[in-house]
Design a protein around this nucleic acid. Structure first.
Lengths: 244, 244
DNA sequence: GAAAGTCGGACGTAGGACGTCCTATGCTGT
DNA sequence: ACAGCATAGGACGTCCTACGTCCGACTTTC
């Protein structure tokens, strides 16, 4: 199936058409994540383009999380992920911090809407095991805070498990991405959240939230989450107006 | 500033490092969207890589919406956009429709959480002008529905303007992306929503929502939005189990 | 002074060559 | 017979050269 592309097209459109042809090929053949794709040579012949052009398109698909390339072995359909969104948002976030930090605030707003808006539904589907895991994380946080250590991973896990009951991959990925992007931005502003007092405060707010979740008090959980994000917004504001 | 990259690294990591070097270069030089970037030759010299390797990295950044390339002219820092997310989600959505359509449901769930969760806040900041625009769109919808025409664009605009008062670019982009992805998926299942009855129903539900927004009844607006999405979920279910 | 033609720079595409890496095959030693 | 290693082959990674295409700016001409 040699495709004869329209002769004259904008370069960007041509690259887009090529990536689209490749994804169509995946869909038409019914390839599933993990399945092997044709080799570069086969794709070159099939799509009627040179190796450089093809590789540029493939690299784009790799960046978009569509295909996975294993050096010396071959090319495969990738598992679900949102690498693309993460990379894109991270860059935008870092960029905006250079002047205003506006986008970081928007990110927090969206996270707040998602988490505060969905925590009630998540609580309806939560299991004993989830609660046990959450409690273990909180205990861990409190211990680390007392020792003066930070607990980035524990924080991330807490939020991840909180929404796991919804069983929504897209949501989990989005929240994970937002968390990672936020952490990257946060690190680049050299946040002073490693003070023991701040650590204890963060641990405590997670403890409160856990108790609300455990007791099934949805409105309380929602408002505690909102508070949590207000605190984060405060840190960002401090950074933007340190002289304030 | 010739960078000497560590000699041995995973190929994927190397490409990532290269894209990262380029974004760092943008950030370090304080380039703003629209600003010109170094040429390929300059970047090759500066980053110490060959043209193919460099171009692959650049194409990735183009796909991620970081840079914009103008054939025969040069390379520029791109304006904000979420092309990457859109492309990635569209592919995933189409892919999943081949078996279960699970991801389409997840997409609707996230949209519902965002829109139903934030409509209240948006209503607090809404202006007379926004209300006027919304009403104009609803009137348009009703007219088109009566004539048996579909109103994709009007639908999209309604939701866009509804959340414009929040003045959150990220949120607007996310909702726009979700809408586009959903439309693409929807088209590929050959939805039968062009029947006059269905059109009238959709127009009516937007009318109800508009009235709720106008009267400032936040809980009602939120629940109407939730209903709207329940209807969409129903269409998806029909598609997945047509024999049912 | 304005319009048309020309020139140069920059990106787009193709193909070849060689390096690197991974898997699989077959051999060897126990 | 089985485990471990050595080797061969395939496939991706990187670089180079060459030429095509496009755009903006400069020059020429009327």
């Amino acid at each position: 199936m040699i495709v004869s592309r329209p002769p004259r097209l904008d370069a960007h459109a041509r690259l887009r058409a090529l990536t689209s042809d490749i994804t169509d090929l995946i869909l038409d053949r019914g390839l599933l994540p993990g399945d092997a794709m044709p080799t570069e040579q086969e794709l070159m012949a099939e799509l009627g383009v040179g190796r450089n052009t093809l590789r540029e398109a493939i690299k784009v698909l790799q960046a978009l999380g569509v295909v996975e390339i294993r050096h010396g072995f071959g090319m495969f359909v990738a598992e679900e992920n949102l690498v693309a969104l993460s990379d894109s948002l991270t860059f935008r976030g870092q960029m905006s911090l250079r002047h205003k930090g506006h986008e970081a605030n928007e990110l927090v707003d969206v996270r707040q809407a998602l988490e505060a808006g969905l925590v009630g539904t998540a609580m309806s589907a939560i299991t004993e095991q989830h609660l046990a895991e959450l409690e273990a994380i909180v205990v861990d946080m409190e211990r680390l805070a007392a020792d003066g250590h930070s607990f980035i991973d524990a924080d991330r896990n807490f939020h991840r498990i909180l929404f796991e009951p919804l069983n929504n991959q897209l949501l989990s990925n989005l929240l994970g991405v937002f968390w990672d992007v936020y952490r990257t931005i946060h690190q680049s502003i050299d946040a002073k959240d490693s003070t023991r007092a701040h650590l204890a405060e963060t641990a405590h707010s997670h403890r409160e939230l856990f108790e609300a979740v455990k007791s099934g008090d949805k409105p309380l959980a929602s408002s505690l989450l909102a508070c949590h994000f207000d605190g984060i917004r405060g840190q960002l504001a401090e950074f933007n107006a340190p002289a304030g």
